[in-house]
């Protein structure tokens, strides 16, 4: 919670009453452009992997109402309102999804970025390739039970990597080794996500 109080002005510049959110004044509805606020700061959450989904949803709804373009349509703040709403939607999308959230946290703590490090966990590429071949064979022959076995295996591998991502992301900022391992796990899960999407 520190991160929000750090960036939110203590008092509204317009009505001089205490500010409850970094984005807008609860009293006079003045908007505060959130330049430089990261997704966690936007919601007033500490930059950590574990997030209470109910708290995220509640905060998202509350903030969305405050900055909603409908309330600021005719004012000079309409552009800010649109931009803040878009930013909130994007932040909510990222924080809601554990893989995107871990990806974002890793970026906040200095990477490595996906573009800089394409490494995967040992054996993942070969396993993904094999599973692809098995899926293709099963589809070609219409072997439903084999296809179900493939799907179950992919889901299991996906779950395992997801658990690994959580474990590593909770150690952030961590040492470079932890961050590289998280990068490799995040890269690896993409191959199973793709497979799941096709099954």
């Amino acid at each position: 919670m520190d991160s929000s109080t750090k960036t939110a002005p203590a008092k509204c510049r317009a009505c001089h009453r205490p500010m409850g959110s970094p984005l807008f004044c609860d009293h006079c509805h003045s908007l505060y452009p959130s330049e430089g606020l990261n997704h966690f700061e936007l919601f007033g959450f500490p930059p950590a992997f574990d997030i209470d989904p109910a708290a995220l949803r509640q905060k998202y709804l509350q903030l969305s109402r405050g900055v909603h373009p409908d309330h600021h349509a005719a004012s000079p703040e309409s552009t800010d309102s649109l931009r803040l709403s878009a930013q909130l939607n994007e932040a909510h999308r990222v924080l809601l999804d554990p893989v995107l959230r871990a990806e974002y946290l890793l970026e906040l703590f200095g990477g490595p970025a996906a573009s800089a490090d394409k490494g995967t966990l040992e054996g993942v590429l070969a396993t993904a390739l094999q599973l692809r071949e098995d899926v293709c064979d099963a589809q070609a022959t219409g072997d439903r039970p084999a296809l179900d076995r493939c799907a179950a295996r992919v889901r299991q591998l996906h779950e395992e990597l997801l658990a690994g991502i959580g474990e590593l992301a909770r150690q952030l900022p961590g040492d470079p080794q932890v961050r590289r391992r998280l990068r490799a796990t995040l890269n690896s899960i993409k191959y199973y996500q793709k497979l799941l999407g096709e099954l």
């Binding site: 996906a114 394409k118 995967t120 590429l125 070969a126 993904a128 390739l129 692809r132 995040l186 890269n187 690896s188 993409k190 191959y191 996500q193 793709k194 497979l195």
Partner: peptide, 13 residues
């Protein structure tokens, strides 16, 4: 050689 592109999930042998 087995390589992959994590951006798109493509795998190539």
């Amino acid at each position: 050689g087995i390589v992959g592109a994590p951006e798109c999930g493509d795998v190539l042998k």
